[in-house]
Simulated scan of single mutants.
Amino acid sequence: MKVSIFPTSYGFIHTHLDKAEGKLAIKIFSPADINAFLSFLHNAKTNGIPLNSIFGGMIASDPETGYNIYQMTYTGDGTDLPAEFTKPQLDDLRSWYINKAQKMANGNEGTLSHWDNTYYCLFGKYFSFGNGFYEPVE
């Protein structure tokens, strides 16, 4: 995902909708989504915007409810803010994420859901989620 970030930017929202022709639609935040959120946080810190006002949002299609809305927020003070992913880190995480998501979608390893800690499982490779660092909100 690519978004424009300006000195006064506060966040973004986008969709993860069902895909045609059997392509996997992953209904949780992607590595690019997390990286965009980190970019918004660093931009806010540089420009004096309160970090707790920054958000990353996603609307995902759902066969049972029609859609679900998820939002990332940051509750820290900025001293523990990790750097944005390097290209090799992002490539590695994207490959791992797609592989893990495909296994989950095939029913071999859990489900794709924010509700069963899948979100934490997928991104725990690079982040510590303790202390409310990134939290999915409905």
Results as ranks from 00 to 15, higher is better:
4 S>E: 13
5 I>V: 15
5 I>Q: 04
6 F>V: 10
6 F>W: 05
11 G>P: 08
15 T>P: 04
17 L>N: 13
17 L>E: 11
19 K>N: 12
20 A>H: 03
21 E>F: 07
21 E>L: 05
26 I>K: 07
31 P>H: 09
32 A>R: 04
32 A>S: 15
35 N>S: 01
35 N>D: 13
35 N>V: 08
38 L>T: 10
39 S>I: 00
42 H>Q: 13
42 H>I: 03
45 K>I: 02
47 N>V: 04
48 G>W: 00
51 L>P: 08
53 S>Q: 14
55 F>K: 08
57 G>Y: 12
60 A>P: 02
61 S>H: 09
62 D>Y: 03
65 T>D: 02
70 Y>P: 05
70 Y>R: 13
70 Y>F: 14
72 M>C: 12
72 M>V: 05
72 M>L: 15
73 T>D: 02
74 Y>C: 10
78 G>K: 09
80 D>Y: 01
80 D>S: 15
82 P>M: 07
83 A>D: 14
86 T>Y: 00
86 T>F: 05
87 K>Q: 14
87 K>M: 04
87 K>N: 14
88 P>A: 11
89 Q>M: 13
91 D>K: 15
92 D>Q: 12
92 D>K: 11
94 R>V: 01
95 S>A: 13
95 S>C: 01
96 W>G: 12
98 I>V: 14
99 N>H: 07
99 N>A: 13
100 K>M: 09
101 A>M: 15
101 A>F: 04
102 Q>A: 07
102 Q>L: 10
103 K>Q: 12
104 M>G: 03
104 M>A: 15
106 N>Y: 00
111 T>P: 00
118 T>M: 10
118 T>G: 15
121 C>M: 07
121 C>I: 10
122 L>K: 04
123 F>A: 09
124 G>K: 11
126 Y>T: 03
127 F>P: 09
128 S>F: 07
131 N>V: 03
135 E>F: 01
